[in-house]
Simulated assay, not measured.
Amino acid sequence: MALPELDITATINGRQVSRADVLAWEDKRIDAAAKKLGVPAPDPMPVSERREEWLQIKRALGDDEMLRRLERDARIADIVGRAQASLSRRRRICVTELHVPGGTAQELADWFTEITFSSNQDAMERSCPDHFVLRMAGGRQQVLETNGGSPFAALFDIDYDDVSSLVTPIDPQFPVRLDGVAISSTGRPIGGVRHQFRDTADGVHARLLVEFPLPMLQTVISGHRWHLACEFSNWFEAAFAG
């Protein structure tokens, strides 16, 4: 499903990054994600085509098989995440900013909310190579993904209803938000997201923010800034395709 490419500018690690740079990162992560699952990566081709090929490989494996293959990763990541969260209630913050031409902040938020709660796995999992399983289960979103530069895929739930454990203040200059709390296997909050959006003269300014446990390695934080740029750039293009 080739979509019109938007001239999105990201700010990652304090510097401006082009859409082409983010696409190059996505291309490399397809190879890394395929290795993680133990399957051949799609052949070299334009990133938009590899993205679709990679989605179909994940579809062919199925959710249960991907959960089985990454069970050990998920178990280790859960133990580490719970241990890190128990050390301090403070959080390590990961932020990426996007400037997106066209569309509105509410348009993106409405589209994202619809694909989330309708459990549109294709739209969710297409957006980033490291998204393995993203689906609604028991009123929460089940997520199996690799976070940034982590060596392990993590399995957790996102609660979109009770976000009281988030520590990042709401910025009144960003009137549109997508908030959620990451929940471990024991039901403990271990982090979350506070994504904030506002309209600009020529499009949308997105401040994408993830709260990790304070002891989280800086390599994971740095890598996850690219993860955020990748997934939301693809989501913006899909949301504004009409």
Rank of each mutant, 00 (worst) to 15 (best):
D78F: 04
E125A: 08
L87M: 14
R177H: 14
E71K: 11
V100Y: 05
A229G: 14
R19P: 02
R69W: 03
V95M: 03
N234T: 05
D43S: 11
A241Q: 12
R207S: 06
A74G: 14
A24S: 10
A238K: 09
E53F: 00
I8M: 06
D31H: 01
S88E: 14
Q16M: 08
V204L: 07
T219W: 00
F197M: 09
F240K: 07
I12G: 12
L67S: 08
F117R: 03
R194I: 04
A137K: 10
E97H: 07
D159R: 05
L23M: 04
T104C: 13
V210C: 13
D179T: 10
V95E: 14
P40I: 00
G187V: 02
I190C: 07
T96K: 04
T200V: 06
S164C: 06
G192C: 02
I190F: 05
A182N: 15
G192P: 10
V181K: 11
Y160H: 11
I8T: 01
Q173E: 15
V181I: 13
I170Q: 12
P40Q: 00
P189V: 00
W226A: 11
L178S: 14
T104K: 07
I79V: 12
V17W: 01
Q121R: 08
P101F: 03
A201S: 13
N120E: 08
C230M: 09
E125N: 11
H195D: 15
G148F: 00
L6S: 03
F174Y: 13
V220G: 04
I158W: 02
D202K: 10
C94S: 13
F112Q: 09
E107Q: 14
L209G: 05
V181R: 13
P101E: 08
R126W: 04
S86P: 09
H99G: 03
V176Q: 14
R89P: 12
Q141C: 10
P151R: 01
D110H: 04
N120Q: 04
C94A: 07
R135C: 10
I76N: 15
A74I: 09
L108C: 05
P213A: 04
L6D: 02
A153Q: 15
G223W: 01
D130L: 07
I12L: 14
R68I: 00
L134G: 15
V193Y: 02
S184Q: 11
M124L: 13
M1I: 01
I190S: 05
F152V: 10
S184R: 12
L134P: 13
